[in-house]
Write a protein that binds this DNA or RNA. Structure first.
Lengths: 347, 347
DNA sequence: CTGAAAGCGCTTACAG
DNA sequence: CTGAAAGCGCTTACAG
């Protein structure tokens, strides 16, 4: 036994006078090893604080038990929940997570080599894009991937998303039913499938009903929502219904409306997407589309682990429907009367 | 060369008809290898998409280049920023991060064995506690740790924190200078050094000035702040100055005050701690103590990497001062007049 | 300038 | 029930 460094299975074997292979089997509770031997080994292991070396094991078994998670919008309020649930569930299932973060503009591609060096058994990419070139590299290396809340246009990788388009439709229908007439959309980042699909669902429905949709650019941030709402309300014929690409944008929009003295939920209706905790704060009472996070995560994990364990994973796309949660930021039909009374932006 | 699986250095060696050791050296750009050989090897490596196996390398070098990060409050708005900065800086410095999350009640202890199995070269524990027993285990294994924004009472591990006590004093002084007279503190979780120190600094200063401090329990959440403020304002002689253990608590407190029709920044002053983005939202304009996140992270990384690279790391505590950022949630002296005019909670 | 070989710490056929 | 040995894919003295 060496004095410095960690204790290894060889150390255990030597002090017990048995073979290292026997130690290894005893530690994995191999029933072929005599109960007494197993106990002896395990007792010594505990006493000496033996910790198996996962790298050595992985080298031998060709399984790292590591899942790589690549996240781009870690500081946007929705994603910490995703990350937390992903890692804790993965832990419970016996996997470890190797975390990579990337800024949203950046491609994930640069990170891929690192993921591969560390022999990840699988990869989850959240709110970031994967080039089809890299997706091929992954396939070649035999590393399954699933995209979370984003999907590749060429369908080269598997993905699970909220049904963003359906969510957009839900919003349109709700707003339509409550008698709104002047519609707007405050967008998120343009190169994201989430933004595209939310807008598509919303706009298609409204146009089918004969309404035009005014569009403001944005980037999924509070500041962008604030600015966009300012622009919307400063025009003649300002909208009475504004759908925002996500909650944080909607919250920015609400604050902007307030600053201008426009009453949210009366003069202007605002709807978000996500259902982050802030949406429920009494200061906002934001009506929004709730993303079914738990189901989305369960589904991602199921797909990924299934693929790792051998079911070939073609390109599998899963869209899980969100649900509208009604709070106070939308004017319902009954309250519609006289809503221009103290309008300021509409004068 | 095998048809399935990843290509290894042996594959490269065989197809080039040279020794594997030469390949290895060529890939690490060892100058002893002829330039032509190096180029040949690197070209083939690129062509075949060779990726070195980090596990095999680590086994041989006895360095994993892995840092474990244990986070407990991942979904509390302050910590995603910490996590993001930590991981991106670690990446730039050539390290990878293995992520563990834990709920705050739970001890970190259960996770430690996993960290050790994966041969982390170092460990950062953010907003979670490490038992002194486990801290010894880590020392025995030779794995350096630094705690982030928490420190062990027995000073058995290194730590870097915001100077929470100093921050509490800053708040007290500011409130004192602006003529407040009825003080309260809404606490965070009790077993945290952050909560303890913020309260201690605040209270000590106020008591020295002859003021008592009313205390409400809390747990660093919006809901707790909301409830605590409700309690405070529903009593006779309600406080005119409330320091909250963190921003999110303060925001809950502000919303509660509003619901009760009590004007924040006039009838009651509220101060938070952290300076999360929401503090700057126009709906809150929260005066708060800004944690010097960048400096705290730089310091943590410096300590940790220093320890990994050989400087023995005794128990090193570093407290980095925060700064008061003034916004609108505190009544300044000049506005003090007639502040009971439309008081409602004070009647 | 290059190669043969040992070693990192495990798992797992293969023998007995 | 246990052991000797090969092998996972690298790095790095040691020779030449």
């Amino acid at each position: 036994m060496r004095s410095a460094g960690r204790v290894t299975s060889v150390d255990l074997a030597q002090t017990l006078g048995i073979a290292q292979s026997t130690v290894s089997r005893a530690l994995s509770n191999d029933t072929r090893i005599a109960v007494k031997t197993r106990e002896k080994v395990q007792a010594l292991a505990a006493e000496l604080g033996y910790t198996p070396n996962a790298f050595a094991r992985s080298l031998s078994t060709q399984q790292s038990k590591l899942i790589g998670i690549v996240m781009s919008e870690m500081t946007s309020p929705f994603y910490p929940f995703v990350l937390e649930k992903l890692t804790s569930q993965l832990h419970e299932l016996g996997w470890r997570v190797l975390l990579f973060s990337t800024d949203s503009d950046h491609d994930v591609d640069d990170l891929l080599p690192l993921v591969l060096e560390y022999q990840c058994d699988g990869l989850i990419i959240a709110s970031a894009n994967l080039s089809s070139h890299m997706s091929e590299t992954l396939i070649r290396h035999g590393t399954p991937v699933v995209l979370f809340n984003r999907y590749a246009s060429d369908a080269s990788s598997s993905a699970v998303c909220c049904d963003n388009r359906g969510g957009g439709r839900l919003v349109a229908d709700y707003l339509l039913a409550s008698g709104h007439t002047r519609y707007a959309y405050i967008a998120g980042r343009e190169n994201t499938s989430t933004n595209r699909d939310r807008e598509l669902g919303y706009t298609a429905r409204l146009e089918a009903a004969g309404f035009a949709v005014r569009r403001e650019t944005g980037n999924f941030t509070y500041e962008a929502g604030f600015a966009a709402m300012g622009r919307l309300l400063s025009t003649r014929d300002a909208p009475d219904a504004v759908f925002c690409a996500n909650d944080i944008t909607a919250i920015g929009a609400i604050d902007a409306a307030r600053e201008l003295g426009v009453q949210v939920g009366h003069e202007v209706s605002v709807i978000g997407f996500d259902d982050i905790p802030m949406a429920a704060w009494s200061a906002y009472k934001l009506t929004t589309v709730r993303q079914p996070v738990a189901a989305m995560i369960a589904s991602s994990l199921e797909m990924l682990i299934g693929a790792i364990e051998g079911q070939v994973l073609g390109s599998n796309l899963r869209f899980i429907p969100g649900s509208l949660v009604e709070r106070g930021s939308v004017r319902l039909e009954a309250q519609g009367k006289g809503r221009k009374a103290k309008g300021k932006a509409n004068e």
